[in-house]
């Protein structure tokens, strides 16, 4: 199949970028979208042009490295799919697809489609953990945890930290990412001990990083490759209010 691409090219963080048109004639419906970009890059290399830079690593939807706006949607049109697992069978021969980086002030562009998402690491470092040092743990079965609770926690823990929630949010909010970690840890007895400190610190950090507010559009949930529910955001707010009131 033939695919036309309009790809965002930008030299560096401070330069201005633009959309550039390319055509890949040798696309196959079995390819992943990133493999299509690989083919484009081989093409560019042969013609002596600079390849399009983009991040990717595991290419099986779990590491969260990849993340592109494909046809206006974070990770592309297929639900619950990271762009590395988006296959070209989701498109038609002759389609023109716009490819842009994830955009947010807190995700500055490094080059072309590569952005800096270290703000997420700083949100986790703010208190996205249980303060337990190695060796001090009791027996794993010492505290029973109901299956439902463990399953709920797992739903939130599934977050891959790709940043699609921020990219898709009209406000550029990181609420879903932050709420996922708060909910994952807050649901489990091991994490509940520090729940108040955690939610306060992480919410504050989210603000410091310059993410926008949440307007409950739920666009984040719609693009999340793991389908993480905005119920987590409600949970984060409850936990935050509880924290404020108990202080």
């Amino acid at each position: 199949m033939v695919i036309n691409l309009r790809v965002w090219r930008q030299e560096g963080p401070d330069s201005s970028g633009r959309l550039v048109d390319y055509t890949v004639n040798q696309a196959s419906e079995h390819m992943s979208f990133l493999e299509l970009l690989d083919v484009l890059n081989e093409q560019l290399l042969q013609s002596g042009d600079d390849p399009v830079e983009f991040d990717s690593d595991c290419r099986e939807g779990i590491c969260g490295s990849c993340g592109l706006m494909v046809a206006g949607i974070a990770h592309g049109p297929q639900k619950r799919t990271a762009v590395c697992q988006l296959h070209m069978r989701s498109f038609k021969d002759g389609d023109t697809i716009t490819v842009e980086p994830f955009r947010a002030r807190a995700f500055p562009i490094i080059r072309d489609l590569v952005v800096d998402r270290s703000a997420f690491d700083r949100i986790i470092a703010a208190h996205g953990y249980v303060s337990v040092t190695t060796g001090s743990a009791p027996d794993a079965n010492a505290i029973p945890i109901s299956k439902d609770l463990a399953d709920d926690a797992m739903d939130y823990a599934a977050c891959i930290g790709c940043g699609a929630c921020v990219a898709a949010c009209p406000n550029g909010s990181a609420s879903l990412f932050t709420a996922a970690k708060i909910s994952h840890l807050g649901l489990l007895p091991q994490g509940r001990v520090e729940a108040s400190q955690r939610v306060m610190a992480m919410v504050d950090q989210m603000d410091v990083e310059g993410f926008g507010d949440c307007s409950n559009y739920a666009e984040c949930e719609a693009v999340c490759p793991k389908g993480i529910s905005i119920e987590g955001i409600a949970r984060m707010r409850r936990s935050y209010m509880k924290g404020v009131l108990s202080e």
Binding site: Y129, V130, V132, T134, G135, S136, A137, P138, D139, A140, N141, P144, I145, S146, K147, A150, D151, A153, M154, A157, H184, L185, L188, Q190, G191
Partner: peptide, 22 residues
């Protein structure tokens, strides 16, 4: 065995039985 204890203490949501055990 220590690894499992450590991971659970960190909040790793391992699969559980209905009785609440791993």
């Amino acid at each position: 065995n220590n690894i499992i204890d450590q991971a659970v203490a960190q909040g790793v949501p391992f699969a559980r039985e209905y009785g609440g055990v791993l």
